[in-house]
């Protein structure tokens, strides 16, 4: 029983970070219908800035700088590349982000050289133990930060003028434009936000507690695991991102123990496949109607 509870704890803790990552995909997709394959490289940019500056600035300032850098990098990708590729459809833009991702990832990995820096200094590897169970402090902090950010996001989405504009744009781009909503601003804000979420997520990802590895190619790969989270929840559903993140975390933890560890990564994708076959737009995604 303890084993089971511990696994659920492990799964929920990781799920919170997957949810942050998945939310990044969803924000951009909702605003622009583009799937951002470069999310993993935004994660790396944020993490790299923390690593490069934390000795000089101290962790809190470096962390803030990392978040800002990831956000700005996302904004730059949108303004410099996506916004100028006017003839391309959304699928081509997704492919464009693959190109961006390859370049940024290789460059950051080159800059890291032999280092695989851990960047969760204030909370990493300081577990809390109680009643035979262990809570990893990193996951606990991630869960709290995740809840705060996601709540804030929901509120902003519902009540702020940006949120209204974005929902309008997601609903019907042309109509939104006609009603005076500036599409470019909504889009740019969405990328900025997604980048910031990636910058926050990496603070928990490149830790001993979460991934067991410092910043590197593996960190980038984790963002890929968050893909199923976004997809199975439904790419245009913020609730879906959160639920998807938790499903992925739990599937991973429980199948590792009760089926086999090497099956756990396939399990995540198989759960996603199963959900997609039943609901092609994910659990909470809007069904796409055929337009003639």
């Amino acid at each position: 029983m303890n084993t089971f509870l511990q696994l659920v704890l492990n799964g929920l803790g990781k799920g919170a970070v997957y949810a942050l990552l998945a939310l990044g995909f969803v924000v951009i997709f909702k605003a622009t219908e583009v799937v951002n394959f470069a999310h993993g490289s935004l994660v790396l940019i944020g993490g790299y800035m923390v690593y490069a500056t934390k000795d000089a600035l101290g962790w809190p300032a470096a962390a803030a700088l990392g978040i800002v850098s990831a956000a700005l990098a996302a904004l730059l990708i949108e303004r410099l590349l996506i916004a100028h590729a006017r003839n391309a459809d959304v699928n081509s833009l997704a492919l464009l982000t693959i190109g961006v991702d390859v370049i940024i990832t290789e460059e950051i990995v080159r800059r890291l050289r032999a280092d695989i820096p851990f960047i969760g200094d204030p909370y990493d590897a300081q577990p809390l133990q109680a009643a035979g169970l262990t809570v990893f402090r990193t996951q606990l902090v991630a869960l709290i930060v995740g809840i705060v950010l996601i709540t804030a996001f929901f509120l902003a989405f519902r009540f702020s003028s940006w949120g209204v504009a974005m929902r309008a744009q997601a609903e019907n781009r042309e109509a939104a434009a006609l009603m005076g909503i500036r599409s470019s601003r909504v889009t740019a804000t969405a990328w900025l936000l997604a980048g910031a979420l990636a910058g926050v997520a990496v603070l928990f990802m490149a830790t001993q507690d979460f991934s067991g590895a410092g910043l590197g190619r593996g960190t980038h790969a984790i963002a890929l695991i968050a893909f199923p989270a976004a997809i199975l929840g439904g790419l245009d559903s913020t609730v879906g991102a959160v639920v998807g993140g938790l499903i992925v975390g739990l599937t991973e933890a429980l199948s590792a123990q009760y089926v086999s560890f090497e099956f756990s990564k396939s399990a995540v994708f198989l759960v996603m496949l199963l959900i997609l076959v039943i609901r092609p737009s994910g659990l909470f995604g809007t069904r796409e109607l055929s337009r003639v």
């Binding site: 303890n2 511990q6 696994l7 067991g212 593996g218 790969a221 590792a256 123990q257 560890f261 756990s264």
Partner: peptide, 20 residues
């Protein structure tokens, strides 16, 4: 036994199982 690949770096779930 617990089989992993060379890129699996988070062994929390495995060690949880071994403890069990």
């Amino acid at each position: 036994e617990a089989k992993i690949t060379s890129t699996d770096n988070d062994l929390a779930n495995i060690v949880t199982g071994l403890k069990g």
